[in-house]
C-alpha cells in the first residue's frame, strides 16, 4: 500500500478509510467500532481539534486491536495505528498543538500573499471558497493599488488560491 501523503496522521487515516471501505467485513465488533473511533480521532487531529483523550484512544486501538481482531486484516489495521503511535510521536504532538509539519492537513495550513509578487490580478479572490481574501484589481491610473491579503481567521487552508495564482505569489505561512 503506497501513499503519496507525507503527513503520517493523514496517511494512516486514509489507510484506515481505505481498509474500511474495501476490506472490512464488520462481523466482529472491535474492528468496525475501533477503526471508526480511530478514524474519528485522526480526523480531529488533522483539524487541530485532537485532545489528550484522542491520543489515549489511539494508543489503545494500536495496542489492542491487533490482539482483538479476528482476522489478519483487522489486526493489520490496528498495527497501522500502533506504528503511528510508536514512530510519529513528534508529528502527533505537533498536530495536538495545531501544526501539521508536512503542511498537508488542510485545517492546519494557512497561506499568505507575498506582496512583492502580487500583480493584483484578482484570480485568488475569485477562487477562494471562504471569501477570505481582501483586495481590489489593479487599475493603472489609480495611485493606491495595494497587494491582496488573506484573512487568517477565515482561511481554511484549502489551497484553491495557490492553484489559481498565475504568479506563484501565495505561500504557506
Amino acid at each position: 500500500m503506497t501513499t503519496a501523503t507525507a503527513c503520517p496522521v493523514l496517511a494512516v487515516k486514509e489507510g484506515l478509510e481505505r481498509f474500511a471501505r474495501k476490506e472490512m467485513c464488520g462481523r466482529c465488533l472491535p474492528c468496525p467500532a475501533g477503526v471508526l473511533s480511530a478514524i474519528a480521532a485522526l480526523e480531529r487531529f488533522s483539524q487541530g481539534a485532537g485532545t489528550q483523550r484522542d491520543l489515549e484512544l489511539l494508543s489503545r486501538v494500536g495496542e489492542l486491536l491487533p490482539q482483538l481482531a479476528r482476522c489478519p486484516r483487522g489486526q493489520n489495521a490496528g498495527e497501522q495505528v500502533a506504528k503511528l503511535m510508536a514512530e510519529e510521536g513528534e508529528a502527533l504532538r505537533a498536530h495536538l498543538a495545531g501544526r501539521c509539519p508536512a503542511g498537508e492537513c488542510a485545517s492546519l495550513v494557512k497561506y499568505k500573499v507575498v506582496p512583492e509578487k502580487c500583480t493584483m490580478c484578482d484570480e485568488c479572490r475569485r477562487a477562494c471558497p471562504q471569501d477570505a481574501i481582501l483586495g481590489e484589481p489593479y487599475v493603472a491610473w489609480r495611485g493606491d493599488n495595494r497587494p491582496y491579503q488573506i484573512i487568517l481567521e477565515l482561511c481554511n487552508g484549502c489551497g484553491a488560491c495557490v492553484e489559481a495564482c498565475p504568479e506563484g505569489a501565495i505561500e504557506k505561512l
Binding site: L29, P30, P32, A33, G34, L36, S37, R60, L64, Q67, L68
Partner: peptide
C-alpha cells in the same frame, strides 16, 4: 481486564 474494558468502550462508541 484492560482488553475487556476496551471492548466495552468500543461498544459504547456505537
Amino acid at each position: 481486564r484492560e482488553a475487556r474494558r476496551f471492548v466495552l468502550e468500543l461498544m459504547w462508541s456505537i
